[in-house]
Amino acid sequence: MEGYTDVLSAQALPPGALQSVHAGGELVLIANLDGEIHAIGATCTHEQEDLADGEIEDGCVVCPMHFARFSLETGDVIEGPATKPEPVYDVRVEGGRIFVGPRRR
């Protein structure tokens, strides 16, 4: 899989879990939303907090610092104080491993 980075064992990320990883020079947040794996930017666009220290709630990741919410699906800001969306990355699961691909938006 050209352009994809092997970042994590799928087993290491149970439903509800978050993990930030390096892929393609970016810090990427890998999230397990009820069994579905999503990948968006891991650094809060508000004040650069690591979103992996936050939690998943209603399909969003909640930043632990000022509680901004980003959609795990689209990267959009669902609730402030952040105003800029997170990038969204292609993600694949193969052979029990999670791979992060190119930026989708």
Partner: peptide, 9 residues
């Protein structure tokens, strides 16, 4: 303790 923030709230 950023990881404790949401639980504390």
């Amino acid at each position: 303790r950023p990881r404790d923030a949401l639980p504390l709230r």
